[in-house]
Write a protein that binds this DNA or RNA. Structure first.
Lengths: 202, 202
DNA sequence: CCGGCAACGTGACGAAAGTCATGGAAGGTT
DNA sequence: AACCTTCCATGACTTTCGTCACGTTGCCGG
């Protein structure tokens, strides 16, 4: 029996996953939680064979949890489970030390297989993501300054406000935007923010 | 036994929901599908007591499916199931004839209760959404045109592009923005989009 | 039938966003 | 040293955004 924990913030989905996985003959669900922090605590406490973690969660997302678990309890293999086929998620997840990337739109057999592979020390990646693997590992396009500007602008700050916050001239902020637009192939700040969200940059 | 069908496009989540609901003593899952169209077909064919439908699906979304099912097989009660607490979804869903709006972030007991209520002809709405019901049809809410503009702008469209799409002058679009800013207390489009997201308007 | 009102449509005009050329500072070559 | 490269900073200039005053349509209650 493979001992696993399920970390997923949507209560109903969590219960459902636990019910489904418990029906599998080779799997035993020994715990479950609703946030990244809970995930880390449970992993340390229960020492499961595999942790199945959703990515998007409040209070410590799945990728952060993978990083923590790999650091504190390296014997626990981590599988990321998500709705979204995002390059950035996959890259960050693998860098954090995940043993796999499973989409919620896969058959049950796929998850079971991913869990078995993870236990064997192999990495399992959703078939639809595998083609995107090459060319994925390059330095982060955006600089720190640029990411800061994006984050400040996200909730509606003007260039003047951003400049004040960062002790810059307004012109400097505008120039940072031009850099950002080029790197993200966006034509204005709204699109840049949308793309950055989509890629998981901010 | 309440006979239900489950319509959800994410394979794993669908399987998991079926497994979970099948464990409930009062419920029998008699069918499941992965798209709005399948939902309508299954509802007509199996005549279940209740249909549990995800909103976001390819090939006929859940709200469309509710509308069709209510039209073709009025004896089937429809429950909408979704991750997102969006005013817009709730309003459209109720207008389409849904018997309830269930968030995936609710305990299992909540769904069971919603299913029982639906069968009894009552409407069950996720607790966190109920407070928003009153203000949903008020004059200070955004008009249809205004919501359209917000949606088009969300991914970075300029006023010129929005105007072209809606067969308007650029000036009209700008004026709509001014209205939007007033109603949402936003100072620019970025903030307006952030607030609208937050409130679940778009 | 008419006044009120809400939603929509428009252009002129000031304010902000976005572009571009330029240059400084830090760190790593040869 | 001289040289790259990357990131950061700035102001002058163009484009787009946002405000305002005004006009139109259609609907509802008196």
């Amino acid at each position: 029996m493979i001992r696993i924990i399920v970390i997923e913030d949507q209560w109903l989905v969590r219960d459902a996953l636990v019910a489904l996985l418990s029906l599998q003959p080779s799997i035993e669900v020994i715990g479950h939680g609703a946030s990244g922090k809970e995930g880390v605590t449970l992993a340390a406490e229960l020492q499961p064979d595999v942790a199945l973690l959703d990515i998007q969660m409040a209070d410590g997302d799945g990728i952060w949890a993978v990083r923590e678990i790999r650091r504190l309890v390296p014997s626990v293999r981590c599988l990321l489970l998500t709705t979204f086929a995002k390059d950035d998620y996959l890259r960050q997840g693998l860098e954090a030390g995940a043993s796999g990337y499973v989409l919620k739109d896969t058959p049950t057999a796929g998850v079971v297989q991913a869990i078995e592979q993870a236990l064997a020390g192999k990495i399992w990646i959703a078939p639809s993501m595998q083609s995107r693997l090459p060319g994925m590992f390059r330095p982060d396009a955006l600089s720190k300054r640029e990411r800061t500007v994006l984050k400040l602008a996200e909730s509606g700050a003007t260039n003047r406000e951003i400049a004040a916050q960062l002790y810059l001239a307004e012109g400097s902020v505008k120039n940072l935007w031009t850099e950002i637009f080029g790197k993200l192939s966006a034509k204005n700040r709204v699109e840049a923010i949308a793309i950055a969200r989509d890629k998981g940059i901010i």
